[in-house]
Each structure stands twice: as C-alpha cells, then as structure tokens.
C-alpha cells in the first residue's frame, strides 16, 4: 500500500477514555505513525474530515450534533468502528434512559444537591438533546465493534493492525471485555 492508511477518530457521548486508551498504545504509537495518517481527530485538532479508510467512534448518541457527526463519519469512512462500551451499547450515559430527559435536566440543573443559580441551559447554540441515548449501530452501519470501558490498548492495537493489513479482525479472547 503506497498511501498511508487514513484514520479519523471522534468522541460523541463518551468521556475520552477510549482516546486515552488509544494513547496507551505508548511506543507502538510511533510504529502506528509510520503506518497511518491521522485525519480529523481530537488528537490532531483537525476540524474537517476527508475521505478516510477507518473511522473510530467513541461514545453513543445523545444530541443532534452527535447525529450529524456520526452521519458525516459514516459517509466519509470506508470502515467504521464502534470503539468502547458507549458506542456499542450506550454505556454509562445510557443510565439516563431509565428517566425522562426532563427528569434528568431538573435533577442536574434545578433540584440536585448544591446547585447555585438553578436554571436549565437554553442557549440556542446548544445542540438539541435526544430523549434517549442510543448506541451508534441504531443510526448507521457499523463494521466492527470493540467493547470495553475503555477497550484495552492492546485490543485497539490488534484491531488496527488487522484492519491495516486488510485482515478480518479477530480479537484475541483475552482482550474481549465489557468493562
């Protein structure tokens, strides 16, 4: 392969833990840098996405911006990967699905303990919220998933090496985890 594999990453309703785990690949990041070119990603701070070979999505869907961004990634990436528990099944943010959005906002901004100046943020710049958190496969086609909160760096490494080499990724049993 002459061109380096182009990768984009993003975090939707996630905590950047998966990105941190990505960085946990440590010195292997240097080898990766030789294999891939990072496109749009919080790690590059590039704001526009070009056509990419691989898109790594951290986090599920909680608002209109997530929806747009995920669709954009899907349109631009040949292979889309759900990276981590939140992208795969909603994860911790989806704990809020047992309440209505209204209840959550009231608790967070009006009635919870220690709130000063209670008010629900209503700046028109803010993205609109989804009534429920959704895993990303409910909105777009997902090619591969890597569960874990976060997925171990070794698992991310193994997955990327498989994808870069054009192999069907088969995660080693000991690297599959949901927590």
């Amino acid at each position: 392969m002459s061109r380096r594999v182009r990768i984009a990453t993003t975090s939707l309703a996630g905590c950047f833990g998966c990105h941190t785990s990505f960085l946990d690949m440590d010195e292997r990041l240097l080898r990766l840098a030789g294999q891939v070119e990072l496109d749009r990603s919080p790690l590059t701070d590039r704001k526009q996405i070009r056509h990419c070979d691989i898109g790594l999505i951290e986090g599920g869907l909680c608002n209109s911006e997530n929806i747009e961004l995920l669709r954009r990634f899907r349109a631009c990436c040949t292979t889309l990967v759900a990276l981590g528990a939140c992208a795969v099944n909603g994860g911790i943010p989806a704990l809020r699905n047992r309440y209505t959005l209204e209840e959550c906002l009231r608790e967070a901004y009006l009635e919870g303990a220690g709130i000063e100046n209670p008010q629900i943020p209503d700046d028109p710049e803010l993205p609109r919220l989804l009534e429920n958190i959704h895993p990303i496969h409910e909105l777009v086609t997902v090619d591969y998933s890597l569960p874990g909160c976060p997925p171990p760096a070794d698992a991310i490494w193994a997955l990327l090496q498989d994808l870069i080499a054009g192999r069907e990724p088969v995660p080693p049993l000991e690297l599959i985890r949901y927590d």
Binding site: D122, R128, L130
Partner: peptide, 9 residues
C-alpha cells in the same frame, strides 16, 4: 432521530 430531539430549557 427527529422525533426524539428536544430543545431543553
């Protein structure tokens, strides 16, 4: 998605 989006506040 469109049905589920709410403008909070």
């Amino acid at each position: 998605p469109l049905r589920e989006l709410r403008s909070c506040g």
